[in-house]
Amino acid sequence: MSAIDLSGPSAARKIKDKVALVLVCVAFALALIPLVTVLWTVVKNGLKRFDVEFFTHSMNAIGGRDAGGGAYHAIIGTIEQVGLASVIAIPIGVLTAVYLVEYGGGGRLARVVTFFVDVMTGVPSIVAGLFIFAFWLKLLGFEYMGFAGSMSLSILMMPTVVRAAEEMLKLVPNDLREASFALGVPRWRTICFVVLPTAFTGIITGVMLAVARVMGETAPLLVTVFVTTAINNDPFKGPQMSLPLFIWDQAQLPQQVAIDRAWTGALTLILFIMLLNLAARLIARLRKPVSR
């Protein structure tokens, strides 16, 4: 009987291992370069106007070459438009996912819905905007308003929400549904009180990503909400501003003061998205039952 070989990997394999490790690290560094550069540039340039006035004033009566002014009107607009878009898209998206996973059972309707969700994922954002423009503004004759922008954003959000919620619902073990059924709990209560709470953390994360994604959309808002320099708190009446459009509007002006405003707008937008992600994590943390 020969002795059992307990020696480690051969020299050739050790070299291969090292090479692979170096390649992975280089790839990581390469991926990090654009990320860090973008963040660094935005922070560096954005801090110049990161002041109280920026967050309390609009651009009303402030010309492109004047200093001062702020993005208050754009922040209000973004919060209202994205908020309304979420109110539309999240319930529809989550309920669609519930249908697909809990009721559809791979039937014809479920397959059709899945197909259209896939198609919607690929819709370019400008097309979503133009659709609302044609339907809401031209056909029904409404004026520019924040709500029109919300509708176009919700078209963009919906497929992401459906996909994320669907994946999370599929992860809920069937055992739990059966346990609930076996207690004589009807299906809809099982879904509301067992399945959805179990998938909640994952769904929240997916939803937040969807919200963050549409927060930076510019094109659909341009054709549905338009731009303004004044504060408009009513998303159902008249043009509103939004952060992406504020950035776009200021960045195309030649004056340095305007470009500085644009940078600060960009920084604000990034902070918003970071806050959303933090909030998602916090909610997820709070929901997780304490381990023993």
Binding site: L176, A179, S180, F181, A182, L183, G184, T198, P289
Partner: peptide, 18 residues
Amino acid sequence: AVRRVIGMVFQRPNPFPT
């Protein structure tokens, strides 16, 4: 209603995790 009258315990314990 039947399942309310006839309860069941499964092979693998499956308490509700939330």
